Computed example of a mutant assay.
Amino acid sequence: MLSAYLLVSHGSRDPRPEIALQQLTELINQKQQSYSSSKKLVGLAYLETRPEPLHIQIKEFAHHAVLAGCDSLKIIPLFLLPGVHVMQEIPEEVALAQQAVGKDFNLELLPYIGSNPGLTKLLSQQMAEIITQAWVLIAHGSRRPGFQQPVETIAANIGAVAAYWSVAPSLEAQVEQLVAAGKEKIAILPYFLFAGGITDAIAQLTETLKLKFPAVTFQLAQPLGASAELADLIWDLMKE
């Protein structure tokens, strides 16, 4: 039986994330050609930036899956943290899509990609390429109660301190504390799937920090990107 999977992303007006998503999908397709005897139908959908709401995109892909011989569709949120999109909006859209497609075709919402334990290993691999005295893991941040806990846990697991782009503690505040503690080499790890406007802004802020603290060596790691390792994490969710 052909299996169907739909990768759900937030969506962006910046073209780079969509290009990366297409590359990631291609990497997943290459994996199934190499390692799987059963075919998997893989598609992309977006929570925002599309004319059709997500539940309509799901419904349309489900129709395509039915025509291809599938009897169910599994949906994977490509999100790193359990914010309002993962906990509320996507489940609501999936429920609307289930009503539209009917009970004979099952929609199953799988865990978001950030919940995969292998993500910590992937972050550690990125960190291993940079020699430094201290790491700052910077995430977007949210005012949602409890949002910090997953980031703080990940930061502790990889030996970093956590900072946030939109709420406190900021990257600059955490860097100031590290400098005050005597750190002369500081590396920054953006906790984002793909490059975009915020990662550009983080890069600009890093340049500002270099000027503010000329005695400190700063290094900026890249976001996760459309790597074979990230494709492996998604592939793990797709194994049956």
Rank of each mutant, 00 (worst) to 15 (best):
Y112R: 09
P111A: 03
S170C: 04
V101H: 13
Y191N: 12
A4E: 08
A187V: 05
I113L: 14
F61C: 00
V175I: 14
A180L: 11
V151P: 00
L237N: 06
S9K: 08
K239I: 13
N106L: 14
H85G: 02
K103N: 11
L24N: 08
K74M: 01
R13V: 00
F194A: 07
I28N: 07
M238E: 02
H85W: 13
F61T: 08
F147S: 12
K39N: 13
V167D: 09
S34D: 12
A155M: 01
L96I: 12
G69M: 06
Q126H: 15
L78H: 03
P169S: 00
E240W: 06
N29K: 11
K185I: 03
V86W: 03
S227F: 04
A155E: 09
Q148E: 15
T199E: 04
A160S: 13
K185F: 00
K212V: 05
A128T: 11
K121L: 15
S227R: 09
A231K: 03
A181Y: 02
F218I: 13
L78M: 10
T132G: 09
F61Q: 03
L41N: 10
T206W: 02
P145V: 03
L109Y: 10
P214A: 04
A173L: 12
E18Q: 14
M127L: 03
L211G: 02
L137G: 04
T120W: 03
A45C: 09
L205V: 13
L44G: 06
L27Y: 07
Y46S: 07
G182L: 06
A181W: 06
Q23Y: 00
K103C: 00
T25D: 03
T120E: 05
H63R: 12
K31V: 04
T49K: 10
L211M: 12
S12G: 02
S3E: 15
V86K: 00
M127I: 08
E108T: 14
A215N: 11
T132C: 05
E89D: 15
G182K: 07
H140W: 06
R144F: 01
E92M: 13
I158W: 02
E93H: 05
D104G: 08
G69L: 01
Q133K: 02
K40Q: 15
L237F: 12
M127K: 13
F213G: 03
L107E: 11
H64Y: 12
L2C: 09
L123R: 04
A226P: 08
Q88G: 09
